[in-house]
Design a protein around this nucleic acid. Structure first.
Lengths: 219, 219
DNA sequence: TGCAGCATACCGACCGGTTGGTATGTTTGG
DNA sequence: CCAAACATACCAACCGGTCGGTATGCTGCA
C-alpha cells in the first residue's frame, strides 16, 4: 500500500462542511436543535445557505452528521486519555469518571453532550437523529464494557457489564441536565462523585476513601 | 381560617387554561419546546389563539406555567404514594425508586419528565424557564432529603443528603434520555436498578438482594 | 501544450408556508 | 351592565428549502 492509495482512503473534507459541523456542535448544545436555524448555522460557520445545502440535503441530515462527528471526536479524546494506561480494570473504570469530571467546565454548553441534547428534541420526530444519538452513546459505553466485565468477574458479581456501562452514561446525561438547571456545575460534580462511589463499592476499589464515617478519623 | 378563605387561596382555574397546560405537558414532552408551536398547543387544547394569549402573555410564560403545573402534579402524586407508609427511612428511599420504576411506561413521552426536557432547550435562552425547572427538580429532590438524612445518619455516613437527593433526580433524568435514545425503556429500568443498588449498598438495606455473587446461593 | 468537457464547491436572491404576537370584536356569567 | 373569557382576522419576521448561476480545478484528447 503506497502513500497515495492512503490519501484516497481519507479524502480531505471540505472546509465549509467542517466549519458547519463545528458550529453545529456549539449552537445546538447552547440553543437546542429546533431553535437553531439554518441561517444561524451559516452565520456561525461563515458560509452561505447555498454551501449548507450543497453539503447537507436537509437540516436533519446536518444533525445526523453532527451527531456522528461528535461521536468520532469523543472516541478520539477517549483513546488518548491517560487513565487507559492504568493496569487494573476497576481503576480504569474510575479513571474514566475522573476523566469526565475533569472535562466539566463552567460553560456547560461547551462541556455537555450533544447526543443527549439532540435526542431529547428529536427522538419522537426523527428516527435518523435518534439512531445516530443512540449509536454514539452506545459507542461511548462500549469503551467501558471490557473493563467493567473484567472487574465484575474479578469480584464474582453477576451483573451485566453492558447495562452498567449504559448506566454510567445515564448518570453523565443526568448530571448535565442538573448543571444546566442549576446554572452551576457543582450538582453535576457531586452526582459524578456518587457514580464513582457506587463503582468503588461495587468493584471494591478503596481509592479516594469512597465512604467516610463520622468520627472515623480520630479512632 | 374558614372554608371560604381557603377557597380564595386556590381560585378555580379557567378551563381553557387548564386544557392548555395539560396539552403542553403532552406536546412539549413529545416534540420539544421550540418545535411545539402556539397553534399546535391551541389545536390540542381545542381553544383559539385569542384564548391562549388571554391566559398567557407569551409562549415562554406558558412554558413556565407548564413547569409549575408539572411540579405541582408531581407533588400530589408523591404525597399519595404508598411507599411513604413504610416505617424505615432507608426503606422509604428505596420505595421511592420503585415508585418511579412503576411509573415507567412503554410510551416514554408520557412517563418522562417535562422539566428535564424543557431545561435542556431553554437553559441558555430563558432564565425564567430554567429557574422554574430547577425549582421543580429541587422540590422533587427535597421530598427525599429528610429520609436520606436520617438513613445516612443512622449509618454514620458523612454525606450531604441534599447532594444525594439531587443525584437520584440526575439518574432519573439520565434514564429518560437513555429510554428515548434506545426507543426502549429497558435501559432506563436497568439504570434505576443500579440507583437502587447504590442506595442499598450505601444505606445498608438488604432488600431484593442488591448484589448477587456467582455460586453464592448454594453455599 | 492547450483547450474542450465536466464535476465540485459555492453564492445569494427568492419562494411558499409558518411563526409568535396583536388588534378588534363577540359572548357570557354574576 | 360590565368585566372576564373567549373568537376572528390579521401582521411582519422568519423558517427550511430551491434555483439559476459562477469560480475553480481536474481529465483526456489532439
Amino acid at each position: 500500500m503506497t502513500a497515495e492509495s492512503l490519501r484516497i482512503e481519507i479524502p480531505p473534507p471540505a472546509p465549509a462542511r467542517q466549519k458547519l459541523l463545528a458550529g453545529a456542535l456549539m449552537l445546538i448544545r447552547r440553543d437546542g436543535y429546533s431553535a437553531t436555524s439554518v441561517d444561524d448555522l451559516c452565520r456561525e460557520a461563515g458560509v452561505t445557505k447555498g454551501a449548507f445545502f450543497h453539503h447537507f440535503a436537509s437540516k436533519e441530515r446536518l444533525a445526523v452528521a453532527a451527531a456522528e462527528h461528535f461521536t468520532a471526536m469523543a472516541a478520539i479524546w477517549f483513546e488518548a486519555a491517560p487513565f487507559l494506561k492504568l493496569s487494573d480494570p476497576a481503576e480504569r473504570v474510575l479513571g474514566y469518571v475522573d476523566f469526565r469530571l475533569d472535562r466539566l467546565s463552567a460553560d456547560v454548553a461547551q462541556s455537555s453532550c450533544l447526543l443527549g441534547t439532540l435526542v431529547q428534541e428529536a427522538y419522537a420526530t426523527s428516527p435518523a437523529i435518534r439512531e445516530a444519538c443512540f449509536a454514539g452513546i452506545s459507542r461511548q459505553a462500549s469503551g467501558l464494557e471490557p473493563d467493567l466485565a473484567a472487574a465484575l468477574a474479578a469480584r464474582g458479581l453477576d451483573l451485566d457489564p453492558h447495562g452498567l456501562a449504559l448506566h454510567t452514561q445515564a448518570v453523565l446525561q443526568g448530571a448535565f441536565i442538573l448543571a444546566k438547571a442549576a446554572a452551576d456545575i457543582q450538582p453535576a460534580v457531586e452526582s459524578l462523585g456518587h457514580l464513582k462511589r457506587y463503582l468503588s463499592l461495587l468493584l471494591g476499589v478503596e481509592r479516594d476513601a469512597p465512604v467516610e464515617r463520622h468520627g472515623g478519623s480520630d479512632v
